[in-house]
Design a protein around this nucleic acid. Sequence first.
RNA 1: GGCGGGUUAGCUCAGCUGGUUAGAGCGACGGAAUCAUAAUCCGUAGGUCCACGGUUCAAGUCCGUGACCCGCUACCA
Length: 653
Amino acid sequence: MNDKKFYVSTPIYYVNDKPHIGHAYTTILADVLARYHRRLDIPTFFLTGTDEHGQKVQKAADEHRMTPQEQCDTTVVRFKELWKKLDISNDHFIRTTDPEHKKVVQAILQNLFDRDLIYKAEYEGHYCVPCERFFTAKDLVEGNLCPECRRPTNNIVESNYFFRMSNYQEWLIDYINTHPDFIQPAFRANETLGFLKQPLSDLCISRPKSRLAWGIELPFDNDYVCYVWFDALINYISGVGYMTDEEKFKKWWPVSYHLIGKDILTTHTVYWPTMLKAMGVEMPQSIFAHGWWLTGREKMSKSLGNVVNPMEMCDRYGVDAFRYFLMAEMPLGQDASFTEEAFVTRYNSDLANDLGNLLSRVVKMTLRQTNGVIPQPEAYGEDEKDLMAEIDRAVAELPQMLDEMKLNRGLEVVMQAIRAGNRYMEKTAPWTLAKKGETGRLNTVLYCSAELLRKAATLLHPVMPHKMTELLEALGMTGEAAANPDIAQLNDDKNVLSGLKMNDILALFLRIQAEEPAAKPLPQEKPAKPAKQENKPQAAKTEMPEGLITIDEFFRTQLKTAKVMEAERVEGADKLLKLQIDVGGEMRQLVAGVAQYYAPEQILGKTIVIVANLKPAKIRGIESQGMLLAAKNADGLKIVTIDGNMPSGISIG
RNA sequence: GGCGGGUUAGCUCAGCUGGUUAGAGCGACGGAAUCAUAAUCCGUAGGUCCACGGUUCAAGUCCGUGACCCGCUACCA
C-alpha cells in the first residue's frame, strides 16, 4: 500500500448489457477511490472498459445485420455516455477488441502453449447456447435442461484447448491463506477456499470457430477463438502496458484493487490468479467484491420491473447527490437497499439540511457583516479549538477509512464535523455578536465556519466534484484550489481564506419536498436530456398534469385475485371480518371492514380482488396482509369480484 | 446437508483485543432560537444487546446448545 501508487480497476462490462445501478456503483466506487488518491498526491491509474467478444454480441450483430465489430461500436457508447454523465475520471477505457489487447492475449496464449500449460483435449458436455456454457450430466435438471436458464441443452463432443489450472490449486490455497488482504472482504476469501476444496479442473479456454467465430483467434490454431473470460481478464494487465510498454506496466502493476461484484468472484479469485501465476506475473494486491443494490429487500431484476436507472436518478437529483448516496449508504462488502425514500431522506438531512444550509447561513452572514470578505481570526477559544479538532479528526480518519474500504464510515466522520459546524453556529451565535458589536470575536467565528466548510468540501470533493467546487467558489476560492482541492495539504494550518470574498449562492442542495418521492415514478427508460441539467430536484414535479398518474404509478399497486377460504367475525369488533384467503396457492390473512354488510358465510368462497403489496397492518391486534376492494356509499357496500371464473393469484391490470 | 456470517433502540446500523450509567444517524415527542434551504440547536426514547446454559471478580463482547435470517456450496459416503 505504501509503494506510493494506486491502480484501481472495474470489471470490463459486457457491451450488450444495458448499464444499470450495479455497473454505476462499481464504477463510481472506483472513481471515488481514484479521485481520493489523486488528491492525496498519490500517482493513480483508473481503468475501466468493455468486454466485447462472445456469442451474444455475435447474435445481436446478426440480428441487426452488422458486423460484430459494428455492433460493439454502437453499443459501447451506452457505457461511455453513462460514465461521462457520472463524472467518471478513468485514465483509460479498454475494449477487448482493441488491437493492442488482442496482440497481448495472443502472445500470452502462445507463451502458455509453448510451455505446455495449454493443451488440446476432447471435451464432451451439454452445451447451453444462450448461456454459452457447458454443463456436466449431473448439473442438468429435468433430463437435459440447463440449470441456469432451464432451456434444453445440446450434447456436444468437441476438441478444445485447456489451461492447466489444476496445477495451481495447492499453490492458490496457500497463497490465499498467507495473504489475508488478497480477497476482501475476508468472508469472500473463505468462500473461495471453500470452492477450492473440490478438485480444481483445467479451464477450457477455446471455442471452435464453427460454433463461435467472434473472438480472438488462437495463435497456434486458427480454427479456434479464445474463450471470453480468458480474454477479458487479461485486460487488467494489457490495459497498463503488459508486453507492450514494460515501463508503464512496472509503474502500475500489481493492481491495488480489482473491484468486482460478488457474482464474478470465482473468475477473479481462481481463474485470474492461476493465469497470472502461469504467466509469472505478480498477484493483484487485492480483489474486492462488493455487494448488490437491492430494491427494498428484493434483488433488482428486469422482470420485477424494479430496476433503478442511474441516468434517471441523475436527471432528477443530480449526479453528485447520487454518487454521495451510493457511497454513503453501502456498507463494506454488503448488500444495500436502494429506495427512493431512503435517498430523499439522506439527501435532505445530510446534504440539504446539514451541509447546504450551513453553507448558506455562513455565506449570508458573512455577506451581511463584512460585505463577504472573510476576516482575519483572532486567537481561538475553546469553541474554535473543538470545532477544528472535529474537522481535523475527519482529515486524519478519512484516509484510514479509505484504506479499509470503509467509505461510508469515512463520509460519516465528515458529516459529524459538519453537524458540529451547525452546533458551533448556535453556540457562538454570530448574529448576536454582530448586534453587540463584538467584531473581533465575530471575525473569528466567521473565519472558522468558513474554514470548516473549506476542509469538509475538500474531503468530500472526490465524491461530489461539482458541488464541492461550487461550495469552494462560494467561499471565494478560484482556479485549481477550487477545482482540485488538495487533501494532502489539509494538514498544514495555513490560512488560505482570510481576505477572500465570498459569493452569494443559491441553495447548494435544494431540499426535496416531502411527499414528492413516493408518488413520483421513475420515468421510462429513455435518458431524458444530456448531462448539464444538474440538480433541480423539484423540476420533476411539474411534468405531470395534476390529478393524473402514469401507467407505471398505477402498476405500483399490485392487484390480484384471491379466493376466500375462511371467514369469521372478529370478536369485539362489529365491523371486521377476519378472512383466510388463497392468493395463487399462498395463504394470507386479511382483516376487512365489511362485517356490517356481509356475513362470514356470504363472503366465503368468493373470488375477490385484493391489493397484494400493501404494507401489512395490525387491526385490533390481528395481522392483515393486504386489503380487499369494495364499493361503498350511504346505501351499502359491495365487494369487487371477478366476472366469471378466474383462479386466485392472478394479476389485475 | 456442509462451511461461513448475522440476530443490539420504531427503522438502518456502530460497538476493536471482555471492565464505569450500551452508542450514532433517521423517525417520533417536547422545548429553544430566528443568521439560514419551514433549515438549526437542546432535551426525551426507559432497548430481556434472539433464547437457554457455561467460563470469569466482570460478557452485547469468550465457549456450548437451540431458534430464525442470509451468503457460498452440495444435494449426502
